[in-house]
């Protein structure tokens, strides 16, 4: 994902001389292409996220597009008021990039687990929020972000995420990754995932086929969300399940709940995510996803349990 991001930003730099990359002393190895080939477009601000956000706002207000890059919570929570007041309120053309959303830096501990960022960024007026699942989504998201004249948040994994088999690829829409059967008597469920858990969602959709009539979707754009697409899914399924490497408060699950409530649809919603808790253990991203029930096995187990209870 990191590579796809840097390549996409380099393409933008080729097209537009006013594109800049700011970092708060991170991106070793990742930034090589920019440092070597676009050195005057690259600014290492030092370990100064607050100053980076405000300086990016200043540059943007002078007509530039500034990508500001760091990992985990550093480019979001650490400089939140700068993002709110200087960037978002002034509609500054700043693209905030966080590498390592969710458990990507699982072994490094609590400070490096980013599981509230989507909620916080979604709450900022005017902020567009993307959480792509694989490199193809990242490339499309960067292109889209550049078209938006205003603040954008892009939440990435760390790298090495498996490619998602999209049936449709339109980054502004809910994107189908698994079709349901046309005529089936099984209860219909739609699995909606965002970001790094989408591969697990795709796997889970296969394993749940015996019990449910399953479809699955990747939702890289969390705000503004594809209201029509989500509504259609809600209306045509008995149950909608959201999966995210994020707190269930404020993330994808909440975004879907808002659509359901605002449009008076009665669809059942199950939110799978961090249950308003901090991580208590460390380990690889796979380990943590499993531990907190966000991986394929966790999703399948949860839905089987619900089925058993309800069809007893």
């Amino acid at each position: 994902m990191k590579k796809a991001l840097i390549n996409a930003v380099c393409n933008l730099m080729d097209e537009n001389e006013n594109v800049y990359m700011f970092t708060a002393d991170l991106g070793y190895g990742v930034m090589n292409n920019i440092i070597e080939n676009y050195s005057e477009k690259f600014v290492n601000m030092g370990i100064c996220e607050q100053n980076m956000a405000s300086t990016a706002a200043g540059m943007a207000m002078e007509g530039n597009i500034v990508f500001m890059y760091s990992i985990g919570n550093f480019p979001t929570l650490r400089c939140l008021e700068q993002i709110r007041n200087d960037i978002a309120y002034h509609c500054a053309n700043v693209k905030i990039v966080a590498v390592g959303g969710g458990f990507a830096y699982g072994n490094l501990g609590m400070s490096h687990h980013a599981t509230e960022d989507i909620a916080v960024m979604r709450a900022i007026p005017g902020m567009t929020v993307f959480s792509p699942a694989d490199s193809s989504e990242v490339t499309a998201v960067v292109k889209e972000a550049a078209k938006i004249d205003g603040p954008v948040y892009i939440r990435l994994g760390r790298g090495g995420e498996p490619d998602v088999a999209h049936i449709s690829l339109d980054i502004n829409k809910v994107m189908r990754i698994a079709e349901r059967e046309s005529d089936s008597m099984k209860p219909s469920i739609a699995l909606l995932g965002t970001g790094t858990v989408v591969a697990d969602v795709a796997d889970a959709s296969k394993q749940l086929k015996e019990t449910y009539n399953v479809s699955a979707y990747s939702i890289p754009k969390l705000k503004p969300i594809d209201m029509d697409g989500v509504l259609e899914i809600c209306k045509s399924n008995d149950c909608v399940v959201t999966v995210e490497e994020h707190n269930i408060v404020g993330g994808l699950g909440s975004a879907i709940a808002e659509v359901i409530a605002d449009n008076k649809v009665g669809t059942r919603l199950i939110r799978i995510g961090m249950n308003d808790q901090f991580t208590q253990v460390v380990g690889s991203p796979d380990y943590l996803r499993h531990y907190y029930g966000l991986d394929c096995a966790g999703i399948v187990e949860k839905l089987h349990k619900i089925y058993e209870v309800e069809n007893d």
Binding site: L108, V282, Y291
Partner: peptide, 11 residues
């Protein structure tokens, strides 16, 4: 830093 360890990569 191993799976399930209490000793994380930041103190």
């Amino acid at each position: 830093c191993q799976d399930g360890s209490r000793l994380s990569g930041h103190i």
